[in-house]
């Protein structure tokens, strides 16, 4: 398969992804935290955006990867794809968690509340819960194929559910609390845009790097299990 070969080819340059991520995030952080100016309205608080926005974007991207991987698994039933989905879910959880945490810290000084039932916040919270459920479900199943299939089903259902959650919360909120706290359309100055772009690229590179490493780990774990199984079946009572 072309795609499989492409991924394997990509895997050879795994180190470049890691290095690129470190470089982008390093420079991006330095520019974001030191050289870029504070925002006119938000002051120094705006700097958390350099972490928040990229991780939020990457977590959505990760969930898309999980969705496509899950469909792919149900179609082809290739265990490596399942390893990739498993890896993606864990990393996506990390990114969603980061986005929620930084968003919450940012919201306290800006909106004067840690949490509000904003559609974006709510759908991210639901995304977080879905991913936790996904990983929990995986630990509670013994049969490998069952685990992979059920997890894929859950990921697909969750992905379809997410936009509906978003719209329903949006409707609900416009009914109850008028959108007073919406984010003002930030027109970024170039010195703010550069670190943001760098951080976004770095974040996606980091995701790809972690995904490659984690997929390989899970794959090797599976091989090890198979090998142990073969040894076990040779030593019988």
């Amino acid at each position: 398969m072309i795609l499989n070969r492409f991924i394997r080819w990509l895997g050879r340059y795994e180190g470049w992804f890691g290095g690129g991520a470190a470089l982008c995030i390093g420079i991006g952080l330095y520019m974001g935290l030191v050289t870029s100016p504070p925002d006119y309205y938000q002051g120094e608080v705006v700097r958390i955006m350099y972490v928040h926005v990229p991780s939020a974007k990457t977590s959505l991207f990760a969930y898309l990867v999980l969705f496509i991987g899950s469909i792919w698994y149900l179609w082809k039933r290739d265990p490596v794809i399942d390893n990739m989905c498993h890896a993606t879910a864990g990393i996506a959880l990390f990114y969603v968690g980061t986005a929620l945490l930084t968003g919450s810290i940012w919201a306290k000084p800006t909106w004067n509340t840690w949490w509000t039932w904003d559609p974006r916040l709510t759908s991210f919270a639901i995304l977080f819960l879905t991913l936790v459920g996904y990983l929990m479900l995986r630990t509670f199943l013994d049969d490998k194929e069952k685990e992979a299939t059920f997890a894929a089903i859950l990921a697909i259902i969750g992905f379809i559910d997410l936009p509906i959650v978003y719209f329903s919360v949006e409707w609900w909120r416009t009914l109850h609390q008028p959108m007073s706290m919406s984010v003002r359309g930030i027109s970024f100055a170039p010195e703010m845009l550069t670190p943001l772009i760098l951080m976004s690229i770095g974040s996606s590179l980091l995701f790809s790097y972690m995904l490659m490493v984690r997929t390989q780990m899970l794959y090797l774990e599976r091989l090890l299990e198979a090998k142990q199984g073969r040894l076990l079946s040779e030593t019988r009572l």
């Binding site: 639901i126 459920g133 929990m136 059920f150 259902i157 959650v165 329903s168």
Partner: peptide
């Protein structure tokens, strides 16, 4: 899905309730 899983009593609401948010709203 959960009936074939260990800890099914816990997993069922954990999976169902977040997804059912639009219904409840």
């Amino acid at each position: 899905l959960t009936v074939q899983v260990r800890a099914r009593e816990v997993m069922f609401p954990i999976l169902l309730l977040p997804m059912a948010v639009p219904i409840f709203i």
